[in-house]
Design a binder for these strands. Sequence first.
DNA 1: CGCCAACCGGACCGCCCGGTCCGTTTATCT
DNA 2: AGATAAACGGACCGGGCGGTCCGGTTGGCG
Lengths: 195, 195
Amino acid sequence: MTRNLRADAVRNREALIAAATAEFAARGAEASVAEIARRAGIGKGTVFRHFPTKDHLLAAVLMDRMESLHAEGERLLGAPDAGEALLEFMMFAGEQKQRLDLSLLVTASPEVLAVPEVAGAQARMFAIFDALTDRARAAGAVRDDVTGTDVGLLMCAPGHLAAPFAEERPELWRRYMALIFDGLRPAGAHPLPPG
Amino acid sequence: MTRNLRADAVRNREALIAAATAEFAARGAEASVAEIARRAGIGKGTVFRHFPTKDHLLAAVLMDRMESLHAEGERLLGAPDAGEALLEFMMFAGEQKQRLDLSLLVTASPEVLAVPEVAGAQARMFAIFDALTDRARAAGAVRDDVTGTDVGLLMCAPGHLAAPFAEERPELWRRYMALIFDGLRPAGAHPLPPG
DNA sequence: CGCCAACCGGACCGCCCGGTCCGTTTATCT
DNA sequence: AGATAAACGGACCGGGCGGTCCGGTTGGCG
């Protein structure tokens, strides 16, 4: 069945995933395998024995993040204020210490989506987006035309937008997340005419 | 002074810029010089005689777009409704037929900013962002804490977010632009506490 | 302790990139 | 038409990438 890994293999695998997480966080999907291996203190060959492809390695890293989002989302489904819960969720998503590009999760490349577990994890993640959004909408905290997909996409933006100022204004992304959430509120809504 | 180009050189230069515009629009800044040359029907060597560097070629393309934004912005500064003018400007920016990634203009790479004309054009462009935003703010159409820089950054988002759905929902980006603009309105504003 | 399979890691491959070079073509001027 | 400089374009270079291979190392079991 699941063949037991040798002790050193386990150690290396852990170091590899840690290094990959850090490196993908820093450089995005274009991070190089050689650099990840160097950072993990192992050879490039070892990387490819643990994962057949760079995309499979990326997939493993993304899975963690998606599960994390999923868990926090489920927790917040139990929060009393549905609107506040949605905002809190978006902030949690943007926060990810290792500021892994959220759009790697939300709009994942075809290659990593080809890994079946990733597709499943992404589907579960979007289900949580929907659940949180439906609840907020039912509570009248967001306007009627907002969907879970909208939330998933929109919450990716602040990270990108604020990235150039991450040094001098590390909290700028929070302001943009709040701004965008305000756009979701029913108060000043001016939705486009359908068409 | 400015040495006259030979007729064929002029033709090739035009074809080159057209091809570069299309290719950068389609593939972003990672478009390859070889492909641009092929598309223009010229050799790669010719590209580098007209522009010393790929970045200089990209710079030439970006300049056009920035001037276009600048012109439309100045036109809209004369529009009666300041708030409507700002929204219209954002829509114009998102529209750019060749949907050239706006963030190439707004958060240009250090390399292309090293081309002095680009830096100047970008500064003029940001000045227009500020002018339009100041006027909208003075008219009470957007909240007090919104700056021209905010507008410049935020208006880049819809293009990215809607890109994966560009095929089946080509107008989705408009909805997001409107949503984001609603977040700028004073109506339902919930700005973050300073800090 | 000694053996062997599991594991390691760096040399190596093919590919594509931005950029250079130079022998060939061609527009232009007389 | 012939001369000449301008312009062309593809072969070529160095570098970095993802991925492979295989001789050397090492953990774990009998």
